[in-house]
Design a protein around this nucleic acid. Structure first.
Lengths: 343, 343
DNA sequence: AGTGAAAATTTGAACGATCAAATCGTGCGA
DNA sequence: TCGCACGATTTGATCGTTCAAATTTTCACT
């Protein structure tokens, strides 16, 4: 159906071809109810014939929107490919809602806030999705004050008073599932290895471990390991727990990176199998690739992304729905030891 | 300096505030030479005062460009975070060149080509960066025929005749460095584990291994392992090489996923150290996190991204420079066994 | 057939910027 | 003093679309 190669086809071209006015073509696309069936048919044919597609810039100018959601891409560390998965899910969700995702990486010298402000002022994006919200993140109140629409992947820890839109994954629930799994395997001494207090999500995951242990009537004394998310450091921290009188036989971890460290610290037996059972968090590719594969808690990023886009679009449409926070439940991906002979 | 909160500041507002016409303000920003110093100063002050930023949509409409580079984000598999690193580098490079990166994830049911065409037709993006170019990728000739600007991360294998713009990493060079490294460690039986023939980049990496082995006067017979990039399968393939009469003592691999498989197949000795030395490709986080850490070949994605943006911008500016291909050299990231006591 | 209301369609303006061409102002040389 | 050239600035048009209002057409009902 395509006639013209380098499409410079405008709505006027279509109008001329169909023998109607610009506005009628516009109505066919944006308000189908207003146009008579016969006319609609004629216009549709002309559109297909010419390969017409409405110009984005013109639409944006007229409608005072960009149809773009901004996402600051940060250098990801650790084994997890959560950012990857989330970005993919975000792009897909945005697509469904008629938006696109625009990523940017402000130069470190720049004032970061200026980058956000600039994108809004120039009308390059309509709002932001933040996936790297820190404890007491200063961006949140600033955005709110500036009236810049945004949503967070992750609760705005340290801003419990403010009303922000967010979607998050219940870390306590996830770690509790990990503990349940380990208890079901017969372990009683289940340690936790994760971030030191003060990171919000880290505290929550640790609380999930503690509660689950209490529920199972298991003691937690001397089983709480806290250190920065770094394999070398975490390996030492796990090792410190293991040299105690009544050492842990299993670990529930704050992330797969911690889990890798726990496995290293635990070492392997004569058959090459790990001495301690470990469950990670984030279900990174590394979890599956380890030998034997490692169980891990998987975050439902697709659902989170879809919901975040919904929340942001609500704001953009100017609906007076108060910003809400929604919690999603992660699931434990259980990976057993390989069957005999499979190695 | 910011006065107005929700910036609806237009060029006319600035003009009025500075007591000049719209065009003069425009000239201050786009053709500073044409404006008298005193006037420039006055306009600049008004711009700062009002917090003016030129509207993107209006510029795009007038200038018939979007300032956006399109990138189809694909679900990445394997341990490598190459896509992540590349995307970050791409966003940064685009930023420097005055562009933004727009990511999209077309629904699988859609004809994928339609998604590209739509983005171009609507003027949403000016061109594309392709990072998942397959052997004889049908998109390339199609883009060329449609006159859609694009550049490739990775050589357009199977289109050696066509003149496309690309930047790539010399896989043969990278694997050769891996072989040199292993030979220097005293290994003579260095195997290769990677994709079966037919993937272009895979063949090149294998060729790099073969040439390096020949250069060192080492035989390659019975040392060439080929299988899909999948840990289970690759572990079997590596195992098959290891049960031979004169088995390999080291592996150079096509990717870190293959390398993980080689390590698993090799097993560990009584001290828990790997029986075979393995060098991977892509330098994924997993390589560093393994115990002991694994050497790997690292691709210079920052340079690649910068160059790709340059090539694409050349096309967009309509310069008559013929499309060129540029090759970058990866580097071996050498990771030794942990020092005693460090474990 | 005539009237009025509803439906269908068209016209003019506007979104905010930049290009091309016109106008204004200034200084210099004859 | 006049004219001319050149620099500085302004005006009008335009990019492609959609909104609001005006206009035309259709159709039911008296």
């Amino acid at each position: 159906m395509v006639r013209r190669e380098h499409s410079g086809v405008t709505i006027s071209d279509v109008a001329a071809a169909a023998g109607v006015s610009r506005q009628t073509v516009s109505n066919v696309l944006n308000a189908p109810g207003r146009v008579a069936p016969a006319t609609t048919e004629r216009v549709r044919r002309a559109i297909d014939e010419l390969g017409y597609r409405p110009n984005r810039a013109a639409r944006n100018l007229r409608g005072r929107t960009s149809g773009c959601i901004g996402f600051k891409i940060h250098a990801s560390a650790g084994v997890s490919n959560l950012l990857d998965r989330f970005l993919h899910a975000l792009a897909a969700a945005a697509e469904t809602a008629g938006y696109h995702v625009l990523i940017f990486a402000p130069a470190p010298v720049d004032e970061e806030l200026a980058a956000y402000q600039d994108l809004i002022r120039t009308g390059t994006v309509d709002g932001f999705v933040l996936a790297d919200v820190a404890h007491e993140d200063r961006r949140l109140p600033w955005f709110a004050k500036q009236g810049i629409p945004f949503v967070c992947f992750g609760r705005p820890w340290g801003h419990e008073d403010g009303r922000f839109a967010w979607a998050d994954v219940d870390g306590a629930y996830g770690v509790a599932r990990a503990v349940d799994h380990l208890i079901a395997l017969g372990h009683r001494r289940v340690a936790y290895l994760g971030w030191p207090a003060g990171t919000g999500f880290g505290d929550e995951r640790r609380a999930g471990w503690r509660q689950a242990m209490r529920r199972h009537g298991a003691a937690t004394g001397g089983l709480d390991g806290a250190c920065p998310e770094d394999v070398a450091t975490a390996t030492k921290a796990a090792g410190a727990l293991l040299v105690q009188p009544d050492p842990p036989t299993a670990f529930a971890c704050g992330s797969d990176t911690f889990a890798v460290a726990a496995r290293i610290a635990g070492g392997v037996d004569s058959a090459g199998l790990p001495n301690v059972e470990v469950v990670g968090f984030d279900d990174s590719p590394a979890a599956m690739l380890m030998s034997p594969p490692m169980s891990s808690v998987r975050q439902p990023v697709t659902e989170v992304a879809r919901h975040l886009v919904g929340l942001l679009v609500d704001q953009l449409r100017g609906s007076d729905v108060p910003p809400e926070g929604v919690m999603f439940r992660p699931e434990l991906v259980s990976r057993g030891r390989p069957r005999p002979g499979e190695r």
